[in-house]
Design a protein around this nucleic acid. Structure first.
Lengths: 216, 216, 216, 216
DNA sequence: AATGAATGAGACTTCATTCAT
DNA sequence: TATGAATGAAGTCTCATTCAT
């Protein structure tokens, strides 16, 4: 267990090593990375429960022993996929929210940004929304806590705008947040790459709807 | 085959028979009904793949043979649960949309109504959004077609309002529909019965957000 | 049991009743007859164990209750199919063997006749050779006894010819019988209706091979 | 998939390893070998459909998981049993047919040899003739193709003899082949080890019947 | 760091037969 | 004479995980 707990770090550590600063690295991706990529694709295509460990290791070109060397369980793969997306979005939201700009501008950018990064990681997002309930209760709790932190930061922006008098307060702020994130979750149900609208266009439209709904 | 083909009808037919006109029917619910109720609860609690047929029949107090007498597969149970909710919501939308009232009023009612019925059937809804991808491809196609019909009806209301000049046309109508239904899907992720807001209050707020976003 | 034991008779009784002497009977075939016909086709197509009672009753257009009214078990259907073919061939052999004709002529006709009737009842024959071991031990014993009687009658012809000096006695007679009946069994493995040779031509060739092998 | 694809080879590879060059190897037979032996015996005794996977693994002293580690399905076991016998007989026929000897001598030896090897592998042969139709259609096709190759080689011998003028051409050659192989198939229906005639005696008689039938 | 054989529990589904009506 | 709901045992196969090497 203790040994395996460190495995996640190694998996991530692998990312940095994949390409040196000189950019000339044609070595194959490291094993943990290949496993995560295979798992992500398969979970998105078939669902978590329908994807067997055997399929994952075959797609990654390794054996089961290797998977269990790096990850404590199948469940760990799922958790790592979540973590990847959550860390990315939290980081970007924190940066955007702290910028120097009118609050309505920062909210618009944050609302659009989460749409763009969700579309750019649509497999991760689909897995997130479909399979979170398949995580072990313990890990589920942890993920939910990280998500709450994200929501809180977003809600704080709305309330900041209200205090500044630029947003209506007709609707409880957490309902507004859920309204917007509902549409973000929903993206993986209908958005298809190569569709009529580019990710940025979709993002601008959805952010616009949010801002319009908040007009006083 | 012939036997099973008729089973769906009987399963639904069972609904009407559950309570006589005098309302005093203490006979046990018919077997197909009991099975659907048990499956609904368990799928919502544990997810479709994690719920075994054995658990369902035990919860319903029948044997596996009985289940397969009425339903061709576990998959059929899921399909029937979807159908139940879809038929209900489609019926209500059709009624609301044809009323005599200003279009903004009809849209507001439709937008709120789908929220209320979703909350009132939160188990069905949760199963719907989490497990639809676990249906057989064929049934998935059928469900998607019915859902599309629902969306189309909703979208037609928005476009009617645009032609009447009461809604903005800043955003493509289908995006607006997806925006709203995203929040409906999302309900099962955060709404808990007995919470701060009643189903109707939540519905009014969400409908209000939609209408505000559509203000010209 | 006792009641059902009589069912076989009724099933056969049904045969005579199917068409009156006037030949104008457009009533549907009686239920036991329809069941046997369906079972014969399905057993030949799919094998005995792979054919379910449900399939049989559906193909016959009746219900399971009806089947179990006329036949004590699935096994009974198989037994009845055997009996039909065995009775037919035994009857014909007895007639042929008693004719007034040289023994080599009678053997040739008997050897050809069993080929023709086997081809004309190819489904029954296929079931016979493939599925006899799936009968209950008791019924299997009975069938084997009837078959032995058939073989004995055939062997007697060979020995009659030997005593008359027209057949070689290089080979034990029972081996000769098995040699010929092997090829009869084998028919259902390769003969296809509408092939290059008519049933009678195939029969003549196989009888000829037997007679040639027996030349002194 | 990849794992199972290799299993067949290992199963057969296991054969060579069963006894070392010194012949003193008391290690237990390898798992795939034990499984095949158990399956062969049980299929012959009870038939393919009546033998459960559970019975096979119990007889082999392993678990179900082990069976499915080596064989993709119950069907694969059947296929492997067929393959074993087919490969053996094809190999022997090829050797015999190419010998330096008069064609009637080579045909007689080939005709007798297939009888002897069939008797020596009577379980395999019984399974072959009773259960081939229970193979998956795809595998059935493959087996039929291999069998056809065997028949073709045999038929070529007959035609060679005809061209040499030593065999009658009264009967189409393929009919002659079917005549003989019918009796080979039939062996498992009547031959019992320890009977009146030894395998070789039976083989000589049956080959003799064939040769006598072919006399000009 | 990695293999892959083996486990054992549990998955979904089928089926011949019975019985109240 | 016939129905069809219900049974309950058994069927084949899958899977996450472990462990000796």
């Amino acid at each position: 267990m203790a040994t395996r707990a460190g495995a996640g770090r190694q998996a991530r550590g692998g990312e940095a090593g994949a390409a040196g600063p000189e950019g000339r690295d044609d070595s194959p991706a490291p094993v943990p990375r290949r496993l995560l990529a295979a798992a992500t694709r398969l979970f998105a295509e078939q669902g978590y429960d329908r994807t067997s460990v055997q399929e994952i290791v075959e797609a990654a070109g390794v054996t089961k022993g290797a998977l269990y060397h790096y990850f404590g369980s199948k469940d760990d793969l799922l958790h790592e996929i979540y973590g990847r997306l959550l860390r990315l979005q939290q980081e970007r939201l924190d940066l955007l929210a702290e910028r120097e700009a009118p609050v309505e501008e920062r909210l618009r950018q944050a609302a659009a940004d989460v749409v763009v990064t969700t579309i750019e990681n649509l497999d991760d997002a689909m897995i997130f929304f479909r399979s979170m309930h398949q995580l072990s209760p313990e890990k589920q709790k942890q993920v939910r806590a990280e998500r709450r932190r994200y929501h809180e930061r977003f809600r704080a922006l709305i309330e900041e705008g209200r205090r500044a008098g630029v947003f209506s307060d007709a609707t409880p702020a957490d309902l507004v947040v859920d309204y917007h994130f509902g549409s973000v979750h929903h993206l993986s149900s209908w958005y298809r790459p190569g569709g009529r609208l580019s990710p940025q266009q979709v993002a601008d439209h959805l952010a616009d709807l949010l801002l319009r709904a908040l007009r006083p």
